[in-house]
Write a protein that binds this DNA or RNA. Structure first.
Lengths: 347, 347
DNA sequence: GTGAAAGCGCTAACAG
DNA sequence: CTGTTAGCGCTTTCAC
């Protein structure tokens, strides 16, 4: 069996040139309707499959956007990714998706692979541990459009799509305060990364604004996973000084708090109330379902893709942008006004 | 700025040929250590990035495996995918991941893209609605190694990796029976797809074996998502004939049952007990945590990748394989022996 | 409307 | 050990 049908095979059969076939297949207006029809028919019959490697090499573009995310088994990312896919599909682009597993070295390797693939642009959400921006500088110096998404690095020549982390955090804390809480803890992410830093700052600012002191025992910094939530709670618990309320930096961290609290017999939300940043589709099945600061994942994914494409298309002196999408407070079974209700009941 | 550094640029600078550079960069033993060192040094200095399109075109291979899954925001798939990535990484392969969104048309398009990319092999988990195997026949006829994973199509020339759906389902039902239940319902998947069919058959066979009749009201067939679970429960509920126990075809379906049950005031596991196929990392935070038939997702992903690579490497007359990985019953807070305990307490 | 020529950047096969 | 020769399959000019 001949390994692969090529343009020439079709051309030969029709007694036209490769060029005609190439153009016809791409629907180029140069070619007459009749010829186009014929070419397509024969291509179909022969079972022609274009060779992207050849096409990309020759055209110097790939019509694919590279994506690097730290995790995939995670509601936030898988949801954003679906949105990116949909938007790419709609724009006739392919996505080359890679997963860094929160590992900076892998991240670097993936970006190198994407550049070697000559993707038209790259969207990345950095790992927890990414410090070195060298690889990203390299991307920029190659004139490959680069968009940071959610977890970003501040860099010239790159666009960014983030959520309003600080504002969202502030409103969450203010909700807690308006519910009567004053002993408020924060299990936060690394401060080196924007989402960790900004959510912390929103927390701190809201506290300051309402004259509440920050207790060092009640401010924890760590990673963004369940384990980190578990450990974070335990550190607070063992300090002997229990807060009334915890603001968790991510949904998984909040889940970790649930697990830890349950292990030591602390009841949520009665003994300890909680709110977090982000959610998951399974939240409605949690008892109690977490109230949370909603991150519009689809908006985020779509915005990220639109930004790269914008950059891809405008070429030369494109001015990178920073898009910040707003958050929304969603109230479920935690952080509700029960204290106030109790207070008024006591009267 | 010169768009891209090429082999020739390096070659020129060193006064050697492109071939020498090419070989040196790939660590070919032909080239002396000294030359190799020099070449690599210059490549680094110049910021050389290989061009995969050119490499693939010339070598007629891509060192990448295509993957098509129906969903990504889903614990089962995201976990399997992580395993596939890890195994590919370990074997120096790249993964081209695509998501069909349970849409057969997209699935087809993705497979065409992967073939156009000349991936070395393809792993696919078909959509709920995939009927037509034509596109897969095309893959096989092109001699592209094809491995079906979890959701499979029975086809000559393809390998398969599945879990022991029937056996797992049987054991789940037998557990329920041994716990004293006789009124057992099944909210199942489409019977056209192996996982739906086999889990149903395991259920049916276990029932038969223990002399329990199948009530038509208690056997529902539908999709694999939360909605399907919700609807399925409601159909059973509205039939007026409530079972004591439900076997849900997937974890999301079970979640849908939770939601529906909660909406109509049916308590789980007291009024209605349940078990399901598959789980999720958040299960431990559910109240009650679901007992389930565990699918070893990492094993599945690794096996799928190993199978494609095996096929890729053995070329010619490779005999496709069917690997079936065993399941395990995991007991959490549902389907426990409470009925027996009650019985003995009553004596 | 169509085609001839040239080349994208790399590797395979062979020769030295 | 190194280099020469020939493409891989396609798209781009630019003629006709």
């Amino acid at each position: 069996m001949k390994p692969h049908v090529t343009l020439s095979d079709i051309a030969k059969q029709l007694n036209v040139s490769k060029v005609t076939v190439s153009k016809a297949l791409r629907g180029h207006p140069d070619i007459s309707r009749e010829t186009t029809r014929l070419v397509k028919k024969v291509a179909e019959e022969l079972g022609y499959t274009p060779n992207f490697a050849a096409r990309n090499l020759s055209s110097r573009k790939s019509s694919t956007i590279g994506v690097v995310v730290p995790k995939i088994a995670h509601f936030f990312f898988s949801s954003v990714i679906e949105a990116i896919y949909d938007e790419a599909f709609y724009n006739n682009y392919d996505i080359a998706l890679t997963v860094s597993q929160e590992n900076a070295e892998r991240e670097k390797k993936h970006i190198e692979t994407l550049m070697a693939m000559r993707v038209d642009g790259i969207i990345v959400s950095i790992t927890q541990e990414t410090k070195d921006s060298a690889i990203f500088e390299k991307v920029v110096s190659r004139n490959v459009p680069l968009v940071f998404m959610d977890r970003v690095l501040q860099m010239n020549g790159t666009s960014q799509v983030t959520v309003d982390d600080k504002g969202g955090a502030m409103r969450a804390i203010e909700l807690a305060i308006s519910n009567g809480y004053t002993k408020i803890a924060h299990i936060g992410g690394y401060k080196e990364i924007n989402i960790g830093r900004n959510r912390y700052e929103g927390f701190a600012e809201a506290m300051r604004k309402h004259g509440l002191p920050l207790q060092p025992e009640w401010v924890i910094h760590g990673g963004f996973g369940e384990d980190d939530g578990y450990q974070g709670f335990m550190r607070i618990y063992k300090s002997g000084k229990m807060p009334e309320f915890i603001f968790a930096v991510t949904y998984p961290v909040a889940l970790g708090v649930y697990a830890a609290a349950s292990d030591v017999g602390v009841r949520i939300p009665d003994d300890l109330d909680i709110i977090c940043f982000g959610s998951a589709s399974i939240n409605k099945f949690l008892k109690p379902a977490l109230s949370y600061v909603d991150q519009p994942t689809r908006t985020l994914g779509k915005a990220a893709l639109d930004l790269v494409l914008e950059h891809v298309r405008e070429s030369e002196d494109y001015q990178p942008k920073h898009v910040e999408v707003p958050t929304e407070l969603v109230i479920r079974d935690t952080c509700i006004k029960k204290k106030l209700i109790l207070d008024s009941a006591a009267k």
